[in-house]
Design a binder for these strands. Structure first.
Lengths: 348, 348
DNA sequence: ACGCGTCACTGACACGTGTCACTACCCCAA
DNA sequence: TTGGGGTAGTGACACGTGTCAGTGACGCGT
């Protein structure tokens, strides 16, 4: 039973079985050099001098065997990896995030890091942190899907993670925090509505789970902006379905709202269409403002006004990650990303 | 110089420095047992009997030290990982893929696999395969972003990857291929248009790079369906911008088309709006059909007809991955996923 | 003949884990 | 006392890599 070695029924005993994965030792044997030499050659180590003919022999042997280094062994030996862990979001992600992610990935690859998007759906913060820590990444960049508690940060730190970066609605202790100014988004929208003469303003709050992290602060910002101007804000729960939108539109006259900020261009489009079908004039009776500046928002009539949000660029973030890893970025950092501005089209 | 050990200037010499990452040896020391025992306890190995008090001591020690196992060391020792590699797409992806990805991830986690999304933007197939192989994953599930050549498969195989699964427009040699019937999508749309009396049919082909993999076969399917019925197909290049759509709409009358299949609901919406603005009646003069059945497609007037595509479920795929890894799924497999059906709304 | 320096390379260790073979101990029957 | 068998655990090896210290060969000046 114990000899269940995978041995292809190969009749030629002279040939190497070679079904095992080739290692640097195999390369060394084939090239007739030591394993150390192989390592030096394949890593282009500059401190050691190896003659050019030998280098070529080693490279040729590696090519012939189809040698691929073993990342785990490398990580083990080095004591750390060059992996940047990106806990994956499970919310449907828009083109904004998609572009951001690609830029980040590209820029980090340029800095010789490997980006790994790692799913940790529905785990507690500490459990998730432990799962991340097992991979001994050099850095963790959390985009706010899983909350990063101080305990989670401690777990990561103890496991050798050099940098923890969070992108979210508020800063997390002990990390480099990029705080998206979500209240600013709500405030910008409401201030715009007030500037165009609206006084009773609805704010759509998505019922979908996972969006609460964004919608809450946006509502709060809207409230503050309205309060400062003596206007009123009414929260409006809405699910991303036609039925929900119709239901809301049906009781619209009773709400007596002259403006609405809809969290998102998608929710805005959904609501605006439902309002029009129910006989409400946009923007005559009610002005509508979305967010994210989607192309599709310009296809409806009236064209949708929107709040454009300034996200940090992937390249910029990649540099922050790099500096945070080699320690030149200081301990914990907080940086506010604010730059929301309203793009007025026809719906407001 | 060589004693640059990271030593916090801690005045109390009795305490352990403990700045190093704790290993199972540390846990063993603290619990007063051997390292082997620690391994047995923490992995709940059933073949070895360890007394309950000892188990508890070990667990307590691990908790106190905040011990987290080192995945790389584990992988190295085991010779393989339980990692499923998912080369990341760089095209903006819709809610369909997003949902699929979450399901897959969830189901694989349930089977004790770790899903890792790994970016390999703009690499040659073999270079990408080598990069994947370094991680020694148990399986690679390619969603068609990077072409999987036979050479790439060979590289992966030699590095110990147990299963290679491709999801794309055509099957790749030596892999388990899930072939999405893209021609079927185009055919379904065109057959529907012909059934409603259209004869000269445009097919929108996105100019965005990275979509060619899908748009080509869809166009081909449209051609075949039209040819079978004696109708005509005209390819229409279109970029995802308002300008491009306006430009196309302006020369619409000259094209004399009475129907159009627009690759996608998004392109369909863009085009339909441009057509209406240019004075073309939809569906009176020209019928429009999209694909993917987006909610937003129902917001335009007329409501957008669309082709709904049956994607494989995440759970189902997870099971295939599992069987492919332990070899019970056979060698190479080809499976056609066909199930496109038209949902007729008002635009056709 | 000797010392010194450079060149080109190698031997050996460490990283953290899982697991197999083995042992020390105790109990009970012969 | 011996032998056998079960319990509770341990010692040691292997996995694949990077790197430090060391080693033999050779050239050169005295």
């Amino acid at each position: 039973m114990s000899q269940s070695i995978e041995q292809p029924a190969d009749g030629t005993p002279g040939r190497t079985p070679a079904r095992a994965v080739p290692t640097s030792a195999d390369v060394a044997r084939l090239a007739g050099v030591s394993r150390a030499t192989v390592s030096y050659v394949l890593n282009n180590t500059s401190a050691v001098r190896i003659s050019e003919p030998t280098r070529e022999r080693v490279r040729e042997a590696a090519r012939e065997l189809g040698y691929v280094p073993h990342a785990a062994a490398r990580t083990l030996r080095a004591g750390h990896s060059r992996m940047v862990l990106l806990p994956a979001a499970h919310v449907p992600i828009g083109p904004l995030y998609s572009r951001f992610f690609n830029d980040l990935q590209w820029a980090l690859r340029r800095l010789d890091y490997t980006v790994v998007q790692y799913g940790s759906v529905g785990l507690a913060p500490e459990a998730a942190a432990r799962a991340w820590a097992e991979l001994r990444p050099a850095a963790v960049v959390s985009t706010g899907e899983v909350e990063v508690t101080p305990e989670a940060v401690e777990i990561l730190r103890r496991s050798g993670v050099k940098a923890v970066i969070t992108i979210g609605t508020r800063d997390a202790d002990g990390t480099h925090s990029l705080v998206l100014d979500q209240p600013g988004v709500g405030a910008a929208a409401v201030e715009h509505l007030i500037a165009t003469g609206r006084r009773r303003i609805g704010v759509v709050v998505p019922e979908e789970p996972g969006l609460g992290m964004f919608s809450g602060p946006r509502l709060e910002g809207a409230r503050r902006a309205a309060g400062a101007a003596g206007a009123t804000v009414v929260p409006l729960p809405l699910a991303y379905t036609e039925e929900s939108a119709e239901e809301l539109a049906a009781r619209w006259p009773g709400l007596a709202l002259d403006g609405v900020f809809a969290y998102n261009d998608e929710y805005a489009m959904l609501l605006m269409r439902a309002l029009q079908d129910a006989g409400t004039d946009v923007p005559g009776e009610t002005a509508v403002v979305g967010a994210d500046d989607l192309l599709l928002g310009r296809l409806l009539r009236p064209r949708l006004s929107t709040v454009r949000i300034d996200m940090i660029g992937g390249h910029e973030l990649a540099e922050l990650v790099d500096r945070a890893i080699d320690g030149t970025a200081g301990g914990a950092t907080r940086r506010l990303l604010s730059g929301s501005r309203v793009i007025r089209r026809e719906s407001s």
